[in-house]
Amino acid sequence: MEELTFGTLIAVLEEMFGQALFWGLVVIAVLVTIAFVYVIVRDRSLRSRWFLRAELLAPIGAIAAIWFVFVITRSGLGDVGGPIDVIALILIGLAGAVGLTFLAYTVQAVIGGKRGAA
């Protein structure tokens, strides 16, 4: 197989989402990451109350991500045909779960401010 370069992957993703949406999503992801790092540094720790609440949303993130992919591809659980399909679904679910957990924690921490962490 020929090499799949990073440049090609970016080109394909740009075509998939449209240039504006793709880079918009990248910017949002970077901003959320920066905000997350910022609140961790600010509070010098992970606040368990926020983290617990955020974690409770993880299954919702997982289900939402899988549901989203099924809807846009007009398919469903019944179409799973082999191990790689299960692995792909787990990865999609994981991405949704982790993504929403990070987002929820960051939103709480930013809104709650430093005092909320006390």
Binding site: V69, I72, T73, R74, S75, D79, V80, G81, I84, D85
Partner: peptide
């Protein structure tokens, strides 16, 4: 017959 292969064709 795989769902992942369908995923590719579709999106």
């Amino acid at each position: 017959e795989l769902w992942v292969s369908w995923l590719m064709k579709e999106i």
